[in-house]
Design a protein around this nucleic acid. Sequence first.
DNA 1: TGATGATCATAA
DNA 2: TTATGATCATCA
Length: 224
Amino acid sequence: MQPPDTAPATPEELLARSYRIAGLSLGELAELAHVAIPENLQRHKGWSGMLIEKWLGATAGSKPQQDFPELGVELKTIPIDGNFTPLETTYVCYAPLISKPGTTWQTSNVRNKLQQVLWVPLEGDRAIPLAQRRVATAFFWQPDAREDAILQKDWEELTEMIVLGEVEKITARLGQALHIRPKAASGNVLTDAFDADGQKIKTRPRGFYLRTSFTGAVLHRHFT
DNA sequence: TGATGATCATAA
DNA sequence: TTATGATCATCA
């Protein structure tokens, strides 16, 4: 068995690929793909995600789009404990601090990415050596009306603050399901934003993340 | 001990 | 520099 070298043609094929690797360990998948296994994730935080991308046929590289544009599917790995409870929040996308006029929830990058997600849970307990952590059964998810409404409300509140120049007042405590946190290589990375007076300022780049309480509910709905 | 704020690696 | 893949590590 080896990783595919083409993108899946249909959602069914993508799901079939995820089923092929369910139950296998990250060590086995890395070996089969001829990928080096780091001792831990401290300096390789995106390693698992990249490995799964490779096995499902996602195109490497960074684009502000879905992983499988032709399928309209976004791929997300998520570390879980023995009860299928998420151990980490889930990064969604960059938070634009210079918002484009006319952007609404319907046309936002957040909604575009979350419209159809293939969740791939991975054993994430730090007590388990990285190579021994197994891949769980993946599943497709689309926000239901209730989930979409919650996400929309959070997105609109946070986006409104950015538009009003209140970026510096945004804290990760805001947002029921979706929140904003720094997203950068370090604290001295700066990007442009505006303050309440419309003056251009420099601030740390931010990203949208899903709370574990929200993703946990999504997972439990599918593993009960 | 969980969540917030900070950080690491890589690509283009 | 922006954006992807995320998890780390400190502190309330």
